[in-house]
């Protein structure tokens, strides 16, 4: 499905629904970042948006829909403080009903064999966003945050 921009109240809103798998995420990101409002962001802000959206969408594909296929809805809104992002999916809830801490335990002396190969995603999301908010309601995961810029 193509991204659908509309001029609602409070700024430009972009909506996209996409299948939750890595190939669709890659294609969906390319479509979203081509929408003029996002294509016109500063190079730095746009790179942050691409990375954060990729992390969230791939997490949903990998974890929420671990048991099978599903779709993710994305709503993006450009506001004065940055890009407001909302996601919803009908997959499994977050373990414990809360977002992962995304804490890294790596130091320069961590032995190679003990280096983590995962767990970077939530650390990046938490590092690059503000006002993170997660709720589970009506069988849906709903995640919202701001990418300042």
């Amino acid at each position: 499905m193509s991204p659908a921009p509309d001029q609602g109240s409070g700024g430009l809103t972009i909506r996209l629904a996409l299948a939750a798998n890595p190939g669709s995420v890659r294609a969906g990101l390319a479509q979203l970042l081509d929408v003029p409002a996002l294509a016109d962001l500063s190079e730095d802000h746009r790179a942050t948006v691409e990375l954060v959206l990729a992390e969230v969408l791939n997490n949903i594909a990998e974890h929420a829909y671990a048991a099978g296929a599903g779709a993710t809805s994305v709503t993006l809104r450009l506001i004065s403080t940055g890009l407001s992002c909302q996601f919803s999916d009908c997959g499994l809830p977050m373990p414990g009903g809360r977002l992962p801490d995304g804490k890294l335990s790596v130091t320069p002396v961590t032995p190679t064999a003990d280096l983590p190969e995962g767990g970077f995603g939530w650390h990046l999301i938490r590092s690059l966003t503000q006002d993170l908010h997660y709720t589970r309601a009506d069988g849906q995961n709903r995640l919202a945050f701001l990418i300042p810029g």
Binding site: P22, L51, N58, E117, G118
Partner: peptide, 16 residues
């Protein structure tokens, strides 16, 4: 031009 956490994890995995 683009590396996400999965790509980073793969590079770490190769180092290991």
């Amino acid at each position: 031009q683009f590396l996400d956490s999965s790509g980073l994890g793969a590079i770490v995995a190769v180092k290991k």
